[in-house]
Design a protein around this nucleic acid. Structure first.
Lengths: 219, 219
DNA sequence: AGAAGGAGCTTACACTGTAAGCCTGAGCCG
DNA sequence: CGGCTCAGGCTTACAGTGTAAGCTCCTTCT
């Protein structure tokens, strides 16, 4: 009669990882433990180890799952537009999974989605005429910006309503006499002149323009 | 007779943080625990809490200590050269403390050294004629590259001797039929064509050039 | 029917951060 | 000098972590 212990569906690496992602989405990775993960699946912690090597395996797994959500760059078009689109898609995904940026920067990632993703990216750049070396740098430069910016964006909330309180919380630490320039910037920020996507694309275009100039020059 | 429990020197926040840094340098932050830190100081773990609020306080403290090691950008000179020097100095420091990059990206840092550092940076950019908004983006773009690149540099060792083994360890995961471009790049890397500082400055100049062009255009 | 194996569970260990409270010696004050 | 205060250490304790080892029982195959 298939009296499964608690939940109907059987466990599987697939299912474990998917639940791990949603658990990390609320609560962050640091709040994700094997026991909580087990509980969320209606299962004891140790049972997970039948489907997953260890916690690091889980972490690698959920990162690759998230990478899989990013729109793959398709070759054949304008390289600049393609990579621009890629970066914006990545940012969207990373905002959905606020814990992911850090993990993608901190750990070597060689999951299948990641490999496919990077391969496609390098493909686009090679197709555009970049050397392997420059393609490598280009890809890194873009992704550093994507992750770095998104990280900052999340730790300093850009939602218009949050400006004031965030600024008010931090301003006392930045007296104008000691840190004149920082203070000036903080007030600019508190005035609400910053805006997520626009600012993101600003830095992105800085890099893309630089690359294009490099490419034109090399021809 | 002042029979201090074990060690001659008395404890102090200063001393705790300095030892914490050296402990993190070998062993990484994830290997740094309050008990080990206490042991290294000849003291019980709980004694640390008389000088430090909690572990987060320690982490914030050691990050700020490390930031203090970076050469402060001095205003008055050529902004491009100044910021270039700043970035290179930062990279040197971050290579000395491999755990620091991640922490500087992941946590909001408002220690005195950090504030001074950022203030001086913004000052240079403002002096060069950039608006607050662009100065903010510029500083972020540069630091994203510094941290991102250094992180990658450390997780994928660039020391010439290490190329081969790292490549050999990873190449089996990158079959040429499935990931043609990645494979091509990996072989380029395995051939030893990459080099830390040179590659770092490549990306750095990409950003600095972009900024300079932006500045000239705005005038 | 019997064997085999896999998927779950239980127990246990070493380790983490830190709350609460004790103890002792140094410095200060009347 | 006697006594008080209290800072800076120590002890104990708790809730939580990852995971090794081994048990149990259900399913499936022969």
């Amino acid at each position: 009669m298939a009296k499964k212990r608690k939940t109907g569906r059987p466990l599987s690496r697939e299912r474990v990882l998917r639940v791990a992602v949603t658990l990390a989405d609320r609560g962050g990775v640091e709040g994700l433990s094997m026991r909580k993960l087990g509980e969320a699946l209606g299962v004891e912690a140790m049972s997970l180890y039948k489907h997953v090597a260890n916690k690091d395996d889980v972490l690698d797994g959920i990162v690759d799952l998230v990478v899989g959500e990013i729109e793959l760059p398709v070759p054949g078009g304008d390289w600049r537009a393609t990579l621009r689109r890629r970066a914006i898609s990545a940012r969207e995904v990373l905002l959905r999974h606020p814990w992911a940026s850090l993990m993608m920067m901190s750990r070597v990632n060689v999951g299948p989605s990641m490999l496919r993703f990077v391969d496609a990216t390098i493909g686009c750049l090679r197709e555009a005429g970049f050397s392997y070396a420059v393609a490598d740098h280009a890809w890194n430069a873009i992704d550093n910006h994507v992750h770095g910016f998104t990280l900052q964006e999340m730790s300093f909330p850009l939602a218009p309503g949050k400006y004031r309180e965030a600024a008010q919380a931090h301003l006392p630490m930045i007296p104008a006499d000691r840190y004149p320039h920082l203070n000036g910037l903080a007030q600019e920020v508190a005035a609400g002149r910053h805006d997520g996507l626009h600012d993101f694309e600003f830095g992105l275009d800085l890099i893309l323009d630089g690359l294009e100039r490099l490419r034109a020059h090399a021809d």
